[in-house]
Amino acid sequence: MKQGPSFEESWKVELRRGLLQYAVLAIVRLHEEGIHGYGIARELDERTDGLLEVKEGTLYPILHRLRKERLLNSHTEKSDAGPRRKVYVLTGEGDRVYRELSRTLGDVFEKLEALS
């Protein structure tokens, strides 16, 4: 009897995981004034029609990693909802990395298309 997720399910999970950092950079890049974590989660869901099936809480370790890598900066602002919230902004290095990743992804999809 087979246990756990199927091969294709595991593959999709890995793929989504890999693309998530890129998608977060892409969304932050769209907001020059910055965007808070909840905003990123909503846009991610709306713009991808939920394709990445993200549990919203898992975005925060990614945002922290991107900030540590100096691809994002953050500052806090008041929120009507309750506690102060962090607003994330793309850095110059983040913009360079995003453009590089976009080029790589473009190349990968182009080559994969040629295979099918």
């Binding site: 974590g37 909840y38 989660a41 919203e56 809480g57 925060y60 929120s79 909802a81």
Partner: peptide, 8 residues
């Protein structure tokens, strides 16, 4: 961050 997210 998570707490702020919950309230938002």
């Amino acid at each position: 961050d998570v707490r702020a997210h919950i309230y938002e």
